[in-house]
Nucleic acid binder design. Structure first.
Lengths: 105, 105
DNA sequence: GGTTTAAATGCAATTTATTGCGCTTTATGC
DNA sequence: GCATAAAGCGCAATAAATTGCATTTAAACC
């Protein structure tokens, strides 16, 4: 399943389906998960059926499932590519800059 | 950095900071990212400063950064643990069930 | 097949996020 | 230093998500 090829909406649906499977694999009811996560049943139902939700809700649910560290995947913790390290001699960049037209088409 | 040990709010702040670093590493302005992702500048500012946001917004931004597949980390795509495979002989479970008191304290 | 209970659905109320706009602050390049 | 443009911030309006409740559907277990 290639997320890159899917629409935003389709991705939400896919993630919802996966959440549901994960919950069922653990044999939890929606009510169980609601209680553990602190999110209402109704929201969990929405989530599982692919409705848009809040990142806050997702975090609560991931915590309840013990899968919080999956959030690490978003943005690589260390950061700072070698290229960058070379470009800025010392200080860390606090703003984007540099004629703009250089790097972009 | 251990996300597990952080509050929901702290996690949002951490992720916001990482987004900002990632953006700067690519030397993109907030306006650039806003344009590429289809999310308003103001929302990006909120995001980077740890304000709660929508999963939809996050998806748009991840797509703009070419990091959509990081969403795969949430819930393992395949699923279905060996244990489960053993428990249900054939059909796939569609509801949680089973005396409840068995598995939980 | 009947019973139990998990899950789906519709709706209204409330809360929360998103956006645009104008203004201020400040890093960066010259 | 100074000019430029990126980023920060407050506010109000709009849009969107969350919630609770009541009802209906249907899996799971006997």
């Amino acid at each position: 399943m290639n997320l890159e090829a899917m629409s935003d909406k389709a991705i939400l649906g896919e993630l919802g389906g996966r959440l549901q499977r994960e919950r069922l694999n653990r044999n939890l009811t929606q009510a169980d998960l609601a209680l553990k996560s602190g999110v209402s049943i109704r929201s969990i139902q929405y989530l599982e059926t692919g409705h848009p939700c809040t990142l806050a809700s997702l975090i609560k649910i991931l915590r309840a499932l013990g899968n919080l560290t999956s959030l690490d995947a978003f943005f690589p913790e260390p950061g700072m590519s070698p290229v960058q390290l070379a470009r800025l001699k010392g200080r860390e960049r606090q703003r984007a800059s540099g004629s703009k037209r250089d790097e972009k088409g």
